[in-house]
Amino acid sequence: MMQIKEQFNEDRRDALQEVVNIAMGQAGDSLAKLFSTFVELSIPKFHLCDVTELNQELSKNAAYAEKITILRQPFSGQLRGEGIAIFNNNGVSELANLMGYEGEVTSNNEREMLLDVCSILIGACLNGVTSQLEIALSYTAPTIISQNTTVNEFFNPESIQWRYAMIMEIRLTLEQYDFKSNVLLFLSEDSFPPLIDKLDQMLEEI
């Protein structure tokens, strides 16, 4: 683990955080246009951990203490991992209003809205990352993996195939609404070498 942590030295972490910051800026802009409101973005947090410590690491974030809905969008190519979008349950109930939906909100409508928002968020974020790192990724449609759950119930270390995970985490909040979303970009350990190569190329160019 120490060896892996050393690979992500201060300069590489800084470069990666900036790449994700720019990508999430684009994702935030897409969401702001969809909701017609200002989206506040947090500074991206970098986590590198053994997957057995994943719950402990994520539960440091108070946002995950409440009941949440979790969606995922796997990606592969030069980097392999998953985009995870987490929404607080209070925020999910505001989605229809935010998206200007006027009909009766059924559980099907709600699922569609969640999938749309996830697709916009993760899609814009991944597009931002790929264009800056000049890599190609392919990704599948998002799916809802759990509703009305908690982080601890969801991230079961035994269900994750990787030993180590690198996670970039960013929080989006809306002015005057309860809606909150956390976007997590998980990268598998086999993505570390190509990612580091790309970050080094960026750093060499400045």
Binding site: E18, N21, I22, M24, G25, Q26, G28, D29, A32, T37, F38, V39, L41
Partner: peptide, 11 residues
């Protein structure tokens, strides 16, 4: 800024 929202610009 990476925050490219119209509202961020206006603010």
């Amino acid at each position: 800024s990476a925050d490219i929202q119209t509202q961020a610009y206006e603010r």
